[in-house]
Design a protein around this nucleic acid. Sequence first.
DNA 1: CTGAAAGCGCTTACAG
DNA 2: CTGAAAGCGCTTACAG
Lengths: 339, 339
Amino acid sequence: MAQKIKLSTIAESLGLSTATISLALRDSPLVAADTREKIKEQARTLGYIYNRRAASLRTSRSGIIGVVVHDVMNPFYGEILKAIESELDRSRHTFILSNHYDSVEKQRTFIETLLQLGGDGVIMSPAIGTPIEDVKLAEQNGMPAILVARTMDGVDLPTYRGDDSYGISLATNHLIGLGHRTIAMIGGTDQTSTGRDRYQGYVNALRKANIEVDPNLRIPGPRSMQGGYEAAVNFLSLPQKPTAAVCWNDLVAIGLMNGIARAGLIVGQDISVTGYDDLEQAAISMPALTTVSNQQADVGRLAARALLDRLAGSHEPDGIHLIRPEMRIRQSTGICRPR
Amino acid sequence: MAQKIKLSTIAESLGLSTATISLALRDSPLVAADTREKIKEQARTLGYIYNRRAASLRTSRSGIIGVVVHDVMNPFYGEILKAIESELDRSRHTFILSNHYDSVEKQRTFIETLLQLGGDGVIMSPAIGTPIEDVKLAEQNGMPAILVARTMDGVDLPTYRGDDSYGISLATNHLIGLGHRTIAMIGGTDQTSTGRDRYQGYVNALRKANIEVDPNLRIPGPRSMQGGYEAAVNFLSLPQKPTAAVCWNDLVAIGLMNGIARAGLIVGQDISVTGYDDLEQAAISMPALTTVSNQQADVGRLAARALLDRLAGSHEPDGIHLIRPEMRIRQSTGICRPR
DNA sequence: CTGAAAGCGCTTACAG
DNA sequence: CTGAAAGCGCTTACAG
């Protein structure tokens, strides 16, 4: 490794001051155009690498934005991240990613690390049980936070998420319209705002159709494909013999469909199943999954935009921004046939 | 936001020097135990946040490790990342993640950013067409690099990946053992080392069994579930009427199986399909997928270990470390029946 | 249009 | 066991 090239190396080699070099490399009009070009050329040939730590220490802006969600491997978050990534890329921000796996400690460690690195802001989908202080920690140290996908009670931060209650009612109404009356709800947890909202939306849709709500038709818990797959046994042995299942998300629905298929029943004929999220794989699952698009791309894009706007000084209104979900009807749902 | 707390704030409040505070907070035995406790206590009550940029500027170590792969949303990389994450967490390193989507530019931008942030090291699965200089850029600036999943010709870096040629021959031999003679290979690209190796392994296995290799039985390209799904039409209309398909990876295999099912054929009976990677969802797909475990957890863990060892000063041998894949036999393969 | 100098917040020899 | 001082590599008023 050659000797470290810094501003002063370039300055000396050209007989200029570091101030001039610094300005020139950042395209300041204060430096004459030809001097600027000469300096840039020299920086290139010397293989100069800009030291962001030094700059950031001086300016107290780092260009770093943190993103922390439950689990990147879950395609739902993956699709949100992709939208955030493409928005931040455009503005030359670096983004640091972390999973919290719903561990409040892991999430706090991440926020602290981000503060230590001088992060400019953070986008988070808060872990279950996140104390308000952990979010305030960021704000109080000058690092604005934006929430995605999950709401937190008692904090007044800009939040971008789908309208879960409305979305799940779309799915439930679709099944009711096909004649289903005994409809189970599979997966999710009351520990997140999303979980509570989706269950509530399902309950509301049933009530509106004058269908009695049977709490035993709810199988809470599963949130993954594996979880949905395992839930199939429970679902199929419910004494009420449900003819349809509203699932927490697409992963649970796909797992459940595979489990039902393995038991010899045909999804879309014997049993109807709906998902939630409209992941890329929903359209090509077997059978193709009827689901609700949660507009992940919009959620990510809008959240990133909101953060960038805030960093640029504009103060967007706080509060919850609900993204409107849309129904996607495919082959996993069909006319009700009693079992 | 309260006034910024720094070492000197704590020092003044306790009538000590910043040197003592700095040492105490890092548990130096040079500071008396009770002074140390008093200092830590004070740091906590003042809400002190360690400024890593300043420290890193001084020490030229940042605690940052970069990881760049093709696409995090691909569960194959996701599983590798998970292993890297858990290994790095333990050593209190922060890791910065990026997708390159096989864009050499995006990858180079990432490496440059990492250098600017003073990254301690980088783990990469190089983009197709990565020029050797881009990797040398990192090394020459004191940032060691480790390769995962893909090899690069002409660079002598520590590389951790599965033994693709051997792995695919396991799958091919398994099909041959079931009586299949007309076996297609679906997906992958000759542009990566992995793609070439897997095709070669398939060819070798056929030759060894005295089965003529028909290049038209290869459908290159697909690497995603969507790709596999779309390839089903081509596959089913091949004039050679293959009875089995060796797929590039599990995603392609699952997509292909869904496509075959949609055409009314039964995978595991009419057509046998093998995957590659043994993703979590392989075991619960419909039918359960016969595949080859690529040992992603080992690849990630060993690569992270190797980097940490190097940062700690030990110089591991360069070169390729091949991880041995393992066969997982499930329901998507069965005895050959002519179509 | 260019330069001299201070300062961002740490850590690290060096003294005592 | 504790302190005074230099320096990491930038940027930014302030002069000229």
